[in-house]
Design a protein around this nucleic acid. Structure first.
Lengths: 332, 332
DNA sequence: TTGGGTCATGAATCCGGCA
DNA sequence: TTGCCGGATTCATGACCCA
């Protein structure tokens, strides 16, 4: 089953930004890389050098909003020098451009990136695309074509709370993450995570593990055991807060995702030492979490603001640039 | 943008079941009707008699599971006579057949029903399709074609809790409800419902409404007002429990949905006296809730088990059959 | 002139981490 | 602890433009 749109597949990809040598950072797990440039160009060459090496590809592409999104400078400089800037006084810079001719052009661009990402994944690996509920459906149909529907693993719903607005509709308070496996046959890499038990369960059963008691052929009743329950296996609806406006984690980069969200994905879908790839790096949340959890990382972005933000973030976490040529680029 | 599949639009609809006179029930809001037969056939004639009359169409079609679903008899007869039946001893009857040649055939069938439903809706009305996260994406693309993307209103996520299973994946714990408006211009019928404030908000702000204080050109701070907050406007992720295995509400009909879920939809999207239509009636949950809330209703199903279940449910709620011909049918 | 569409701006008012 | 601060919001409003 395919999606059709006028001009499908005819879009020419134009790499508008230079593609330099990657910058390499020393981390607990070895090293991670930052690539500057159009991700499609970068992926074309990574397809040769990194085939089958990644356990997780996470991508957070633009959501087809039709706008240019801006990064907002921090209220105070990192070294606490200078005045505290508030409101409109905080400097703004264009971070990424999310304007498209139409949805067809958007899907063409995204689809070709996803196709280029697939070869990077190991047999046990998975890809997670982060989208909103307006685009998710089209992206799912596109990915079903690329990976095969058998490889669709989960629609994860990220539920958050935010300020209310007056609208004659149910407020939108969720994003969607689509997960695909590369292979429907290879045993997947998956570590079950647990959530606290529901309040009603705690009241009825306490914290002991429940066990069904079988009499004859049917389940007679349940009972609790002494063994403490680890909680409920994590479901596909995640309650994770947005990054608070004053949170230390906030970089000012638009569309920044909470570290807690990425931590769940990386813990569940990769082991220590595995490679995590993010072709829409942005503020570098995926990389920062991967580094903290001892995973290797590879990030790509064509926005200079994104590179600067990520470099600063990794440096602040103690990961040092170690390639000479990259150090020079960063210093320039 | 369109979905293409081999043989799209060539499927011939064959009404396999007779289409009798509707059965009419007296309710608080006037009356409601039950139609027995293929819903496509029924909708073809309703399109002439009921054009523009419905405020809400809710449909809970089969989810493309590839199986025949069975109704399970209750453990005890309604009059409490006879033995209490347990486990495999409870009688089973086929309720509906969810086997399809392929997804194309499924979408063809569903799409033609949705097209036939649209004319029943008033300008302020909306349609809600209940699907699962495997089919939702295809159904959304289909509905975008039928209603236009501008009319897409919400992807509602119904989140429930259930017995955990051991699978190397995030447990599926949600269904998806897609809401469309008939007209992007007509003022929609919508009553905002409220949820309790988040625990953190209550702790910080109490139950008073917050208000931003603007000094000069920028927002200086927030403060609480005397006016009590009604809570947060209901979002698009709903935590509603599954029907417990022992709940009074449970009829034994497969795929039965909780009344609490329908109550939210009906309260938000209709007024008293409005007409609610459900072309995949099943156990009659939509009708039961509509009747309880003083809305008129119209249900269609081709399964005799569904009709029996719904009749019994409406009768138990005190709504009486009043059409002579229908009474005869029901008695036979 | 008037009527319609498009675009920038302001208002409404939870949420959560930090000082 | 108490108070702060602004956000991948969303709608109403008003300015502006063109036929």
């Amino acid at each position: 089953m395919t999606l059709s749109w006028p001009g499908r597949g005819t879009a020419s990809s134009s790499a508008k930004t230079p593609n330099a040598e990657p910058e390499r950072f020393a981390t607990a797990s070895g090293h991670g890389e930052l690539h500057f440039g159009d991700n499609l160009t970068a992926l074309a060459s990574l397809g040769k050098t990194h085939r089958g090496r990644a356990s997780l590809v996470y991508l957070d592409p633009p959501f087809l909003t039709g706008r240019v999104h801006q990064a907002i400078g921090r209220a105070k400089a990192p070294d606490e020098s200078g005045p505290r800037l508030l409101g409109a006084a905080r400097p703004r810079r264009d971070a990424f451009d999310d304007r498209w001719e139409d949805r067809g052009a958007y899907l063409d661009a995204l689809g070709s990136r996803i196709e280029a990402l697939k070869p990077l994944l190991a047999d046990h690996g998975s890809m997670v695309v982060h989208v909103d509920p307006k685009t998710s459906h089209y992206v799912k149909v596109l990915c079903d074509e690329i990976f095969g529907e058998d490889c669709f693993a989960s629609e994860i719903v990220w539920r958050y709370r935010r300020w209310p607005s007056k609208t004659p509709n149910f407020q939108r308070v969720h994003d969607v993450l689509l997960r695909y496996r590369v292979s429907a046959k290879a045993p997947p890499r998956f570590t079950t995570l647990f959530e606290p038990l529901a309040a009603s369960t705690l009241a009825t059963w306490g914290t002991g593990k429940q066990r069904a008691v079988v009499e004859g052929k049917r389940r007679a009743r349940s009972s609790t055991t002494e063994e403490p329950s680890q909680g409920v296996p994590l479901g596909d609806v995640w309650d994770v807060g947005l990054i608070a406006p004053v949170a230390r984690e906030r970089t000012g980069y638009p569309s920044q995702k909470p570290e807690a969200l990425l931590e769940r994905l990386i813990r569940a879908l990769t082991h220590e030492g595995d490679l995590v790839v993010d072709p829409y790096m942005g503020s570098g949340t995926t990389l920062a979490v991967a580094a903290r959890l001892g995973r290797r990382f590879l990030g790509i972005d064509q926005s200079e603001v994104a590179l600067e933000t990520t470099r600063a973030r990794l440096a602040a976490a103690g990961h040092e640039l170690f390639a000479a040529d990259a150090s020079e680029r960063a210093a320039s």
